Simulated assay, not measured.
Amino acid sequence: MVWHSVRSGGDTKTRRSRRTLALPKRCVDALALHLTRQQAIRERTGDRWQDNDLVFCTRFGTELDAGNVRRAFKAITKKAGLNEAEWTPREMRHSFVSLLSDEGVPLESISRLVGHFNTTVTETVYRKQLRPVMLEGAQAMDRIFPSEA
């Protein structure tokens, strides 16, 4: 459940950001492994560990700042063989929209999953990623009225 954040005051960006999302099994498995690793780090850190009940934190249990996240993300993209100069954490959100769109998930569902009030913002911000959704009408018309050639 996403009901609070590390933003100033602990609140989410918007009221609609407070929502419950299902996670794919792959993510649940990765989070379980992360928790196991984090517990080992906590034991090694000993008294220096600050328990802030964070899923993602520094090696001492404190909040990550933007620099921490970018540095870790850069290392991960490099290890994955990607050009780290072309990828940012924000790109993951765009990739999420692209993958759902390519899989035929309706625009309304994508919009809700990324926390937008309606599809207008989703369509505006992710126009390039939604290309397959935009092709749906033309493809349907091709099926209804097949070409004679």
Results as ranks from 00 to 15, higher is better:
17 S>N: 02
3 W>M: 03
79 K>T: 08
140 A>E: 12
58 T>W: 04
113 L>A: 04
90 R>G: 01
49 W>E: 01
29 D>S: 13
102 D>F: 02
133 V>W: 08
49 W>I: 06
76 I>M: 06
103 E>W: 10
65 D>V: 07
77 T>I: 06
69 V>A: 01
91 E>K: 13
131 R>D: 14
33 L>P: 00
132 P>K: 04
24 P>H: 12
142 D>L: 12
122 T>H: 00
50 Q>H: 13
75 A>G: 09
25 K>D: 15
66 A>F: 06
133 V>H: 04
67 G>M: 08
15 R>G: 05
27 C>H: 12
44 R>Y: 03
29 D>Y: 05
42 R>Y: 08
13 K>Q: 07
71 R>Y: 14
53 D>Q: 07
15 R>Q: 09
23 L>Q: 07
98 S>L: 05
42 R>A: 03
64 L>N: 03
134 M>W: 10
34 H>M: 03
64 L>E: 04
66 A>G: 11
15 R>V: 06
92 M>S: 09
59 R>C: 12
16 R>W: 05
85 A>C: 11
18 R>T: 13
122 T>N: 03
6 V>R: 02
94 H>D: 02
65 D>G: 01
74 K>C: 07
1 M>R: 04
127 R>I: 05
139 Q>V: 02
144 I>A: 09
144 I>N: 04
106 P>L: 07
96 F>G: 04
62 T>C: 02
141 M>V: 09
3 W>T: 10
33 L>G: 00
128 K>A: 13
62 T>R: 04
137 G>I: 12
70 R>Q: 14
43 E>S: 10
25 K>P: 14
115 G>R: 00
50 Q>E: 14
90 R>S: 02
19 R>H: 04
28 V>C: 09
45 T>Q: 13
114 V>W: 02
75 A>D: 05
36 T>K: 11
61 G>H: 03
8 S>R: 10
120 T>Y: 06
56 F>G: 03
147 S>E: 13
91 E>Q: 15
4 H>D: 07
50 Q>D: 13
88 T>D: 07
115 G>K: 03
29 D>R: 03
115 G>V: 00
119 T>W: 08
49 W>M: 00
62 T>K: 03
48 R>D: 14
147 S>Y: 14
92 M>T: 14
2 V>A: 09
18 R>I: 13
69 V>F: 05
2 V>C: 07
121 V>F: 10
143 R>E: 07
79 K>C: 10
84 E>H: 14
57 C>K: 01
127 R>V: 08
128 K>L: 05
52 N>F: 05
79 K>M: 15
84 E>W: 11
96 F>Y: 13
44 R>A: 07
83 N>T: 14
117 F>H: 11
109 S>G: 02
24 P>M: 06
31 L>W: 02
62 T>Q: 07
18 R>N: 10
13 K>F: 05
32 A>C: 01
70 R>C: 06
18 R>K: 14
59 R>E: 11
69 V>I: 12
59 R>T: 15
85 A>E: 13
6 V>S: 12
147 S>W: 11
104 G>C: 03
123 E>C: 08
106 P>Y: 08
135 L>E: 12
24 P>K: 07
60 F>C: 06
102 D>V: 01
12 T>W: 00
108 E>I: 13
122 T>Y: 01
